[in-house]
Structures are given as structure tokens and as C-alpha cells.
Design a protein around this nucleic acid. Structure first.
Length: 577
RNA sequence: UACCCCGUGGUGUAAUUGGCAACACAGCUGGUUUUGAUCCAGCUAUUCCUGGUUCAAGUCCAGGCGGGGUAGCCA
């Protein structure tokens, strides 16, 4: 991509970084971090954050850390820690040796908590959680100070020690920052810093009975790591004053700054961990890696490539506007990458037999086929051709409409890489369904050109019946029927019942016996596919359609159909009698 | 009803910070093509509204209107 032409790379975050660099801030350092909580799998919204953090660091010769924000042992698991790392690496990013955990900083954080208590900036509150809520006031009314707000430093320290040692029960008390109970920003009304939780932590085990809250831990963790630009989504905007407050009131090694950007929102899907969990738990999808899921693993299994996802993240941009991106952009990104790299093969999804009546009995020819017209180095392969072929049912019409370029009675088309064939007839069953198409071929047209220079309008794909491999092909549609799945209340009600269509009788060319999950294919004229990593076993092929090819014929047909309907609806013109 | 944030083509982002509204996607036309793919060319905007400052406003100011966030011992 030519940087000069692109609007990417000049988002507001990078503009801030550029300005900071010019002003000589942070000794010229740029250091970001991606801070996932290990309580679920990563989705495409995370991909945007990952590409922003790692990408901005890369653009300015900076560094980006991976830090697990594991401050809540009740929700977090090691399984996710592994999966998240795998997904980020697959996406193509590298944190080198800078893998951190907020839990690594528990001792330091505790020290700073004590520091704040000693400075009279924090206190142990013994109000219940309900009382705290009442005392907090409302959005329009100021809060009231807790009766425990002015406990002595020594009393606070003693209580703190008891909290830490597990001598106090969960909910009995909480450590709060002493900020301002009348602050217009509710988050500043003495926010909780530590709560008692007698929970086993995935890394620190039972060492701690108290765990820090996000607001207290996050900015200080950023400081410990020397983060310069702490990027997060817009919902943390109101937290920024608190972020700064903790950093201003603790003896920290460096001063990070928080900047918020709008999280990714995509039409016809949901990008929220909580909601994705529901889809999995309630069995609406196959799991976190269901190819319909907008998770990194789902997209990967579907056949999306890291390059496509990175490109998408670049193209959606980074801003503070709340927006919803069209699926078409994601699809165009994956088509762009797959067009470059996918191996072309032939596969027939809805097979109908084509018999070449003048083909020499029993003869099989090996035809040359180019593997990728976009990449000469991909070479070519041989495909077996014979007198009985499978072709696509949609490539034949008994009574073709105008501008239909494919097969019909007496029509001639090219068989890809093969010969011209002319339809001489067809068979039907009792139900009127076409069961077989009869043709003759022109032996002079091997390779697809006629020596007499005559042209055909259409080229269709095929697979030799005797050599075809059986395959299951899974076609995916949008997971939801509404651009905004929340429309009308519960998103589950807007699930698309037709989001998965499995075709079990597809026929594919024999070279696909060597298919592997990480090789992208283009089934010519139908779409991009990849072998399903989970469902395919030896001798059984299951392909996922990553995305269809653009199809201007389908579009034209649809348009024509619309016009047809309009015409039908129009009342007939009055006849002169 | 308190505080904060955001309004630029159908969609998403730009506009060198006050100087001819650009790029991508989508859509529509047409061309090339042994994939109706790819590729190529062309077309598609009173910058939410009203007023103000200025030679000049998407950009600055004032007032509206609209959308969003915030009252977890979640992150």
C-alpha cells in the first residue's frame, strides 16, 4: 500500500505520538501494551486493539508489551492465557520477552496502597457494598462521606494487615481511595482499590486474600512497565481522571498517559466477550472456534488469514466516533489477500452429470491447469479429464434467459482448461428435474481455444466423475439477521437460522486429497475455501467457505428479478375494446 | 436531570491544524479477461442546524439539535 495515498497511519493516536516525539517527551520512547483479561477468547474487536498497540509501537520504533490483566481470580483461567498468546502470535505480532501479568505487581501495588494510607489518601471502609452504593449518591446528586473515612492511619494499617491475612471476610471491608465524595465524576467518589477475595489465583495461588481493582492496578502497572501511551476503549474515558490520580499520588517510576478510542463494531455480528460466551454456553454455535464466530479462532478456522485481518484493522481506522463497520469491508480484505495467495482448484457444489457422447470410450486425459494466475511461482498441476464429468447444476438451464452465458440446449461453452462442448440434449426424471446433460466436444479446442477463432461466452468448471473426491462443504451466512443484533431487545432472537448450510455431496478434484487446513483454496467461480481443521479426518474432507467470490451475475439476476416483480405488480394496461 | 465524549458521501476513516473536501469499501456505467473472479477507467457530498469572527471556516467562537458513556467490592 502506498503510504502517501492512504488515510491509514494518520489516526489521532499516531498524531499524538508524533507530537510527543517532536516535543521530546518520554526521552523519545514509545511503549504501548495490550492488556487482555484472561477470561475469554479474543475476538476481532481485540484484533483492532492489538493491531493498534503493536502497530503504533512498530511505526515509531517502540515496544509493545503483552500484559494479562489478571486482578480478578474469580473469573480468570490459565486456559485463556495460553489461547490469547497463540491468537496474538497467529495474528503476526511479537511481544518478545515482554510477557507480563498484573499479578506480577501485586507486592508493589500493595506497597503503594500502604503509601496512600500513610499519606491519608486511602482508608479502609467497613460499610457494606449496599451502603457504599447509597453513600455514593447518584449521577445528579453528590455523595456522602463514609463514617469510616477518617480512621487513623494506624487503624487503617491494622485493618489492611487483617484483610491481607484473610482475617476479614469477603465484603466486610474494602480499601478506598480518599478522593472527593462530591465529585461530578462518580468514579472519583472514593473508588475501591482493594477487595477481600478468598479465591485461588491462577498464578499467585492462595498468597493473597485481597486483590486490587482495575482502576488502581492498571495505570500503576503501566507505569511500572514504562508504558508511554496507554490505549483503551472509549468506555474507560471517565476513568482517566482516576488513572491520573493514582499515578499522581504514588511514587511511580514513569508517567503514562491514557488515550481512548472507539471499539470496533461490525454489522450483523456481536463483538462482546460476555455475549459471545452466551452463544457458546447456550449452544447457538459450535464453540469459540465456530467458523461463524467473530473470534480470532473462529475466523481462523473459517479461513481468514492474519494478513487479511491486519489489513482490515488498518482500514477501519482509529477514531473517537462510535461507528459500525460494514461486513463488506472485512470481506473485501479477505478476498484481497486470498486472491493473491489461494490455489485455484475446481469443486462442484451441486453436481449434475455431463456426458460427452463423442468422447473415446474409457479415455482419460491429463490436462494442465494453472494453480494461481496471480502468482506464477505457484506453478501448475495436471487434472484428469474424461467423458463423464460433474458440473454445477446452476451452469445449465433448459430455457436460458437473456445474457446467460452458460450451458443450454445447443449452446457451446468452454470447460475450464479443457475443451469446448456443445449441448446436444438432456435427460429428466419423472419430477421434471434435469438428471444428465449430453454434449459433444470439439477435439480441436484442447486448452480452451478454437483454431478457427470462434469464441464462447462462458467457461464452466467441472470434475471428472471417475476421479472426483467426495467432500462436505459448509457455506456460512451472517450469524444475525439484523445489522444491529440488539435490535428489538435480545440478540439471540435475531440469530440467523440459516447461518450454516452444509452440502454433503460436493465433488472436488483429486489434487485436494493433499489439502491442509492452513492452505487457502479458491474453488474457481464459487469462492474461497479451506479445509476444516477439526472436522476433516483421513479420507473425509470438510471444507469451509471463507467467503464467496464477487458475483456480478447473481447481482444482475437479483436486480432483474426485482424489476420483474415490479412489472408483475403493475396493473395490466387497459385494452381498447 | 449532573459530568464527560462524539456528529464529514450509503459505510469507515482523512484533510499537512484556517487555504480547491481525499482514500478505501459498497453501489452504478463501461472496458479487458480461458474464473460473470482478478484487473482497468468513469460516476456518486450544500461537512447536523442557526448565527458570529475572517479575504477565506469541515476546522475557531456562541447557541441549539442529535447520538453515546458513567452510579460493580467486573475489566
Amino acid at each position: 500500500m502506498s503510504d502517501a495515498e492512504s488515510t491509514a497511519g494518520n489516526d489521532f493516536v499516531r498524531q499524538i505520538i508524533r507530537a510527543d516525539l517532536e516535543a521530546g517527551k518520554n526521552d523519545g520512547r514509545v511503549h504501548t501494551r495490550f492488556p487482555p483479561e484472561p477470561n475469554g477468547y479474543l475476538h476481532i474487536g481485540h484484533a483492532k486493539a492489538i493491531c493498534l498497540n503493536f502497530g503504533a509501537a512498530r511505526d515509531f520504533q517502540g515496544l509493545c508489551n503483552l500484559r494479562f490483566d489478571d486482578t480478578n481470580p474469580a473469573k480468570e483461567e490459565t486456559e485463556y492465557v495460553e489461547a490469547i498468546q497463540e491468537d496474538i502470535r497467529w495474528l503476526g505480532w511479537d511481544w518478545e520477552d515482554r510477557l507480563y501479568f498484573a499479578s506480577d505487581y501485586f507486592p508493589q501495588l500493595w506497597e503503594w496502597a500502604i503509601h496512600l494510607v500513610k499519606k491519608g489518601k486511602a482508608y479502609v471502609d467497613s460499610l457494606t457494598s449496599e451502603e457504599i452504593r447509597e453513600y455514593r449518591g447518584s449521577l445528579t446528586e453528590p455523595g456522602r462521606e463514609s463514617p469510616y473515612r477518617n480512621r487513623s492511619v494506624d487503624e487503617n494499617l491494622g485493618l489492611l494487615e487483617q484483610m491481607k491475612n484473610g482475617e476479614l471476610e469477603e465484603g466486610a471491608c474494602v480499601l478506598r481511595a480518599k478522593v472527593d465524595m462530591t465529585h461530578a465524576n462518580v468514579l472519583m467518589r472514593d473508588p475501591a482499590m482493594y477487595r477481600v477475595k478468598k479465591e485461588t489465583h491462577h498464578r499467585t495461588g492462595t498468597t493473597w486474600n485481597v486483590y486490587p481493582m482495575y482502576d488502581f492496578a492498571h495505570g500503576l502497572s503501566d507505569s511500572i512497565e514504562g508504558i508511554t501511551h496507554s490505549l483503551c476503549s472509549l468506555e474507560f474515558e471517565n476513568h482517566r481522571p482516576l488513572y491520573d490520580w493514582f499515578n499522581e499520588n504514588c511514587p511511580i517510576p514513569s508517567v503514562p498517559r491514557q488515550y481512548e478510542f472507539a471499539r470496533l463494531s461490525l454489522e450483523y455480528t456481536i463483538v462482546s466477550k460476555r455475549k459471545l460466551i452466551r452463544l457458546v454456553d447456550e449452544g447457538h454455535v459450535d464453540g469459540w472456534d465456530d467458523p461463524r464466530m467473530p473470534t480470532i479462532r473462529g475466523l481462523r478456522r473459517r479461513g481468514y488469514t492474519p494478513a487479511a485481518l491486519r489489513n482490515f484493522c488498518e482500514k477501519v481506522g482509529v477514531a473517537r466516533n462510535i461507528s459500525r463497520t460494514e461486513m463488506a469491508l472485512l470481506e473485501s480484505c479477505v478476498r484481497e489477500d486470498l486472491n493473491r495467495v489461494a490455489l485455484r482448484v475446481m469443486g462442484v457444489l451441486d453436481p449434475i452429470k455431463l456426458v460427452i457422447e463423442n468422447w473415446p470410450e474409457g479415455q482419460v486425459e491429463e490436462l494442465d491447469a494453472i494453480n494461481n494466475p496471480e502468482d506464477e511461482s505457484a506453478g501448475s498441476r495436471k487434472i484428469p479429464f474424461s467423458g463423464e464429468l460433474w458440473i454445477e447444476r446452476a451452469d445449465f438451464m433448459e430455457d436460458p434467459p437473456r445474457k446467460y452465458f452458460r450451458l443450454g440446449p445447443d449452446r457451446e461453452v468452454r470447460l475450464r482448461w479443457g475443451y469446448f462442448v456443445t449441448c446436444t440434449g438432456f435427460d429428466k426424471d419423472d419430477a421434471g428435474t434435469v438428471t444428465c446433460i449430453r454434449c459433444t466436444y470439439d477435439p480441436e479446442t484442447l486448452g480452451g481455444n478454437a483454431p478457427d477463432g470462434r469464441k464462447v461466452k462462458g467457461t464452466i468448471h467441472w470434475v471428472s466423475v471417475a476421479h472426483a473426491l467426495d467432500a462436505e462443504v459448509r457455506l456460512y451466512d451472517l450469524l444475525f439477521t439484523k445489522a444491529d443484533p440488539e435490535e428489538g431487545g435480545d440478540f439471540v432472537q435475531n440469530l440467523n437460522p440459516d447461518s450454516l448450510k452444509a452440502i454433503t455431496c460436493a465433488k472436488v478434484e483429486p489434487s485436494l486429497a493433499a489439502a491442509a487446513a492452513d492452505i487457502p483454496y479458491q474453488f474457481e467461480r464459487t469462492g474461497y475455501f479451506c479445509l476444516d481443521s477439526k472436522e476433516s479426518a483421513d479420507g473425509s474432507l470438510v471444507f469451509n467457505r471463507t467467503v464467496g467470490l464477487r458475483d456480478s451475475w447473481a447481482k444482475a439476476k437479483k436486480k432483474q428479478g426485482g424489476q420483474q416483480k415490479k412489472k408483475e405488480r403493475r396493473p395490466p394496461p387497459p385494452r381498447p375494446s
